[in-house]
């Protein structure tokens, strides 16, 4: 009983953080379910894909490629490049996931764009076990995704509400996280680097092929800027220390 109430308590704390994902994933998942069942596949395939693939962009591309005579090797290679951005998400989660213990394999499996963005900005509330907090955020998100896939496959074609523009929910989520990050960090070089590289690569490579070049460009720029950034941080720390000793 105690474990049950502890689990419930952690769910209660994690749930509010995930509400934007609930809405976004339900919508995207439903869209995916409709797309797959329209191709003639049973709705359970949509659920199965949400369960074992669990990648929004990856699943949409997988459905688009689902033609007779699809080349499995090509599909595999395309998915590798399409999802290569996850390698970079992993870099920021190396330290965070060190404490995850038995939950770590699932956390790695479930590291979608949206879960990554929540984990980046998650502040563990007092009295809450960080491991469970992170774990439930990841688990709830996948639950929403699977639910969306199922709903789309089952009743998707019956939905008539005009949802044009609801996809902006993900933009809004990423924006609020960016605003939070802006407030919490002193050094704004990374965010400017990100915007500059992404916009430049979007112009150069076009909307369908700019993610990988952007990731490489961002990484190279940050590595070049590492020394100046660290020097500035060291200077600021020294300045604070000086003020402290003056006060003494």
């Amino acid at each position: 009983m105690q474990t049950a109430s502890r689990v419930l308590n952690h769910l209660k704390v994690a749930f509010p953080r995930t509400v934007p994902i609930l809405l976004g994933y339900l919508f995207l998942g439903i869209a995916f379910g409709i797309l797959l069942t329209e191709k003639g596949y049973h709705w359970l395939w949509a659920v199965f894909m949400g369960l074992v693939i669990y990648a929004g962009m990856g699943q949409f591309v997988a459905v688009n490629m689902l033609l007779p005579g699809v080349n499995f090797l090509n599909a595999f290679l395309l998915q590798l490049t399409l999802n290569a951005r996850h390698i970079f998400y992993g870099l920021s989660m190396l330290e965070t996931f060190k404490i995850m213990g038995k939950r770590k394999p699932y956390m790695i499996f479930a590291l979608t764009d949206e879960t990554y963005s929540l984990l980046c900005s998650a502040k563990v509330p007092a009295g809450i076990d960080a491991r469970n907090y992170y774990f439930f955020i990841a688990l709830l998100n996948q639950g929403y995704w699977i639910l969306g896939c199922a709903l789309g496959g089952l009743i998707g074609s019956l939905l008539t509400f005009n949802s044009t523009g609801i996809d902006f929910i993900m933009t809004a989520l990423f924006l609020t996280i960016a605003v939070d990050q802006w407030r919490e960090t002193k050094d704004h070089i990374p965010v400017f680097t990100g915007f500059a590289c992404a916009l430049l690569c979007l112009l150069l490579f076009g909307a369908n092929h700019f993610i990988i070049p952007s990731l490489l460009c961002i990484t190279v720029c940050l590595l070049i800027l590492r020394k100046p950034m660290e020097n500035r941080e060291a200077k600021e720390k020294a300045a604070i220390r000086e003020v402290d000793t003056d006060a003494l």
Partner: peptide, 21 residues
């Protein structure tokens, strides 16, 4: 250097995700 990237990347990647959207 990897730890540095891990700290600097979230802000940069959030910018990339916004541009992606």
């Amino acid at each position: 250097v990897i730890l540095f990237l891990g700290k600097a990347l979230p802000c940069a990647l959030m910018a990339l995700l916004i541009v992606y959207c």
